[in-house]
């Protein structure tokens, strides 16, 4: 067995694994990005230094977001002033809130309770206090 054969083998192995990594990443992106059709849309607006939530029925909540358990929600996230980041640590939700742009992310509510919503991008003097409460009700 010459050098070239060995090299072909390891090139083959490496390409195969990297191909698998690419497919895995693509599939993962699809699972995480694709919003289920039955998802209810919540508009999330960040501004210095509070969060505003607009429900589909037109109701608005400030500093508090009330959701029902067992439902799927799509968050359309934007900002009124500087760049913020919408973060719910307990549900691994994190997405930038950028002025003039709407980013989206979705989640399912499985367990009732109160959870923290916070800004995860330094946005000014009171960034540390830019928090809200996520309440998941029965």
């Amino acid at each position: 067995m010459g050098h070239a054969t060995l090299e072909w083998i390891y090139v083959g192995v490496v390409i195969a694994i990297l191909t698998w990594v690419g497919v895995e990443a693509w599939t993962g992106e699809k699972i995480l990005e694709e919003v289920p059709e039955d998802a209810e849309t919540i508009k999330v607006i960040g501004q210095q230094w509070l969060w505003t939530f607009e429900h589909e029925d037109g109701s608005v909540e400030v500093g508090k977001l009330t959701l029902k358990v067992g439902k799927t929600y799509k968050f359309e996230v934007t900002s009124k002033d500087v760049i913020h980041a919408f973060n719910i640590p307990s549900h691994a939700i994190l997405i930038d809130a950028v002025p003039g742009r709407v980013n989206h992310i979705w989640m399912e509510t499985t367990t009732p309770g109160e959870y923290l919503i916070q800004c995860r991008e330094y946005c000014g003097l009171l960034h540390y206090n830019m928090r809200a409460m996520l309440i998941i009700e029965e």
Binding site: T5, W8, G12, V13, A16, I17
Partner: peptide
Amino acid sequence: RLALAIIVLVAVS
């Protein structure tokens, strides 16, 4: 060699 590489590629994948 090419054949071997392809076999390895498919097998490892």
